[in-house]
């Protein structure tokens, strides 16, 4: 066995005579390029005409269909509303799903709705560009469900004076003054920051000394933040927001495995330091681009076969998507080697 002084020399030697035949397709494409060349101009013309035609048809369709969908959604959303004409303008395409959900909540509060509500809150947080979920204040006896509902109302309607909307969702509340909302207790990973807020309150004083309605905090251990503020009835109140620190989730992905049945690295095993809420892995062969393995269970590992057929040695690509305990979605991509030894 020859030993090379430098790995570069080994590569140079090995690849000096390396001349694999490219697939026929390459030549076919080159040939096509030259055959096409003559037709290119006419083709571009046709293409341009096609695109313009599509655009015109698209616009026509859009304009004819649009009013219909808007009407339909309005009917759905305000099915219980006694004065539908007042709120019609407010229903834009954007808040359609949220509004639909509110109507559902009025009908019955079931378990499935809680999940939906969570989803909405999530969406909502994104809308508001704030990390912390919110709670509603000044409704001590109302269940959480309705609280959430109310927050949504406030956020979605830029003019809270529209009492019709408020009456429709919550009859018992006093709609004269805007409701005070503040961040829910939340969890973050150490090193992250989170916004905490109190909305629609006066004379806010945070335990951090800040006086703004929104503060940015980055605690290194579990911490409770207090905010004192004045309510509409001139009473001072203090609320507490707990921020918990969760462990960062680490994912271990091996760089190679050897499926030979000796009990050592026989499977491509991905592991996580914390429990994951969701997990999905997809493995693709780098050579053939064929999907060789997919799983949504971190405990089910790839054994190097596809439908029982052992796959060849070489490079494979993985794509992993997971959601950690905090509900954050992560994505990882990379490659690893399948090595065959017998």
């Amino acid at each position: 066995m020859k030993t090379y002084k430098d790995i570069g020399e080994l590569y140079k030697d090995k690849f000096a005579g390396y001349a694999p035949t490219p697939p026929e397709q390459v030549w076919n494409n080159v040939q096509k390029h030259y055959k096409k060349h003559n037709f290119v101009k006419t083709k571009y013309m046709l293409g341009a005409i096609g695109i313009v035609a599509c655009a015109i048809i698209g616009f026509c369709l859009l304009y004819t269909l649009r009013p219909n969908t808007e009407k339909a959604s309005t009917n759905k959303v305000f099915v219980q509303n006694t004065k539908p004409q007042l709120t019609e303008k407010q229903t834009t395409e954007e808040n359609q799903p949220i509004a639909t959900n509110m109507a559902n909540n009025n009908n019955n509060i079931s378990h499935s709705n809680i999940n939906k509500q969570k989803a909405i809150n999530q969406q909502h947080r994104n809308d508001c560009k704030e990390n912390a979920p919110s709670q509603t204040f000044a409704l001590p006896n109302t269940p959480q469900q309705e609280n959430n509902q109310h927050v949504l109302m406030e956020k979605e309607t830029p003019h809270p004076t529209n009492t019709d909307m408020a009456e429709n969702t919550e009859n018992k509340t006093n709609t004269d003054s805007p409701h005070i909302t503040f961040s829910k207790d939340t969890s973050i990973v150490e090193g992250e920051q989170v916004y905490l807020f109190v909305k629609n309150a006066h004379n806010i004083l945070w335990s951090t000394g800040e006086k703004t309605s929104t503060i940015l905090v980055a605690p290194t251990y579990n911490e409770t933040y207090a905010a004192t503020f004045t309510q509409a009835n001139d009473e001072d109140t203090t609320i507490y927001i707990q921020v918990n620190i969760e462990n960062q989730t680490h994912i271990f992905i091996p760089s190679a495995f050897t499926p030979n049945g000796d009990g050592l690295n026989d499977e491509f095993k991905v592991s996580a330091s914390e429990t994951l809420t969701t997990f999905f892995i997809s493995i693709v062969s780098a050579q053939t681009k064929q999907i060789v393995f997919q799983s949504n269970d971190i405990n089910i590992n790839w054994d190097g076969t596809l439908k029982g057929t052992p796959q060849p040695e070489g490079r494979y690509l993985y794509s992993i998507q997971y959601q950690d305990k905090l509900g954050k979605i992560h994505q990882k991509q990379g490659d690893f080697l399948l090595i065959r030894t017998y």
């Binding site: 066995m1 090379y4 002084k5 430098d6 080994l10 590569y11 090995k14 070489g314």
Partner: peptide, 29 residues
Amino acid sequence: NSVAEYDWLSYQLLLDLIHQLPTGYQMVF
């Protein structure tokens, strides 16, 4: 940087190894 020419060092494997390098390294090498 010395290395022995092991018999399992196939073209494919050698190629795979340089493909795994960051693209800049791969080009320089």
